[in-house]
Simulated scan of single mutants.
Amino acid sequence: MQTVRQLLEQKSSNELIAIGPQATVYQALQTMAEHDVGAILVMDMDDIVGIFSERDYARRIVLQGRTSIGTCVRDIMTSKVVYVSPSQTVGQCMALMTEKHFRHLPVMDEGKVIGMLSIGDLVRATIAEQQFVIEQLVNYIRT
């Protein structure tokens, strides 16, 4: 099974998209829209202090009657960030995401953020791996 490191190496774009905790929710949403992502890291210098997702917005802005312009990301972000290491497998990441009910997963190596995986990244990798196995089995049966 493919490792997180291998998956990150294959991604077309592994740009880290982050915002500071003092930024407004509106600024975070703008950044997310510009990069077409569903979550953004909240970083203070090189340290992850949280993650902000569309789910955070829906549950902590819209449903609580707050405003995007008047609320700082630090006030509504998910501050308990779960992350994985580059040596973990795609399967382990999928199991973790399923168990914890989230769709974005930062990757840390020696205390430094080196990437972010989405559930879409993991599903694509799983489908590609399954397709490869199917092709190998078909070739084996034909020979």
Rank of each mutant, 00 (worst) to 15 (best):
Q22K: 14
L122R: 03
Q92S: 13
D46G: 03
V62R: 06
L8E: 00
I48A: 00
M97A: 01
T126Q: 12
M94K: 10
Q10K: 14
Q130C: 10
M77R: 10
G50E: 07
P21F: 07
L16D: 02
V90D: 01
G38L: 08
R74I: 06
V62P: 09
I17D: 06
T143H: 14
Q92V: 07
T98H: 14
I114R: 12
C72A: 15
D56N: 15
I19F: 09
L105I: 05
D46L: 00
G91M: 07
V82A: 07
A58G: 06
L63I: 07
I119D: 13
I76F: 00
V133W: 12
Q92Y: 10
Y140G: 02
V73C: 05
D47F: 07
I19L: 07
L96G: 01
V81H: 10
Q130R: 15
H35W: 11
G91K: 13
R103L: 08
R74Y: 13
G38M: 08
G65L: 02
G50V: 03
R66D: 04
L29E: 08
A18V: 11
H104P: 11
Y57P: 03
V107C: 11
R60V: 04
L29N: 08
S53L: 09
M32F: 01
V62F: 09
M116E: 06
S118T: 13
A18N: 11
L63K: 13
V84D: 03
M1W: 01
M32A: 04
T24D: 01
G120A: 13
T126F: 13
S79Y: 01
G50R: 07
I48N: 00
M108Y: 04
M116H: 07
Q10Y: 00
Y26T: 00
D75P: 04
L29H: 12
Q131E: 15
M94G: 09
L137V: 12
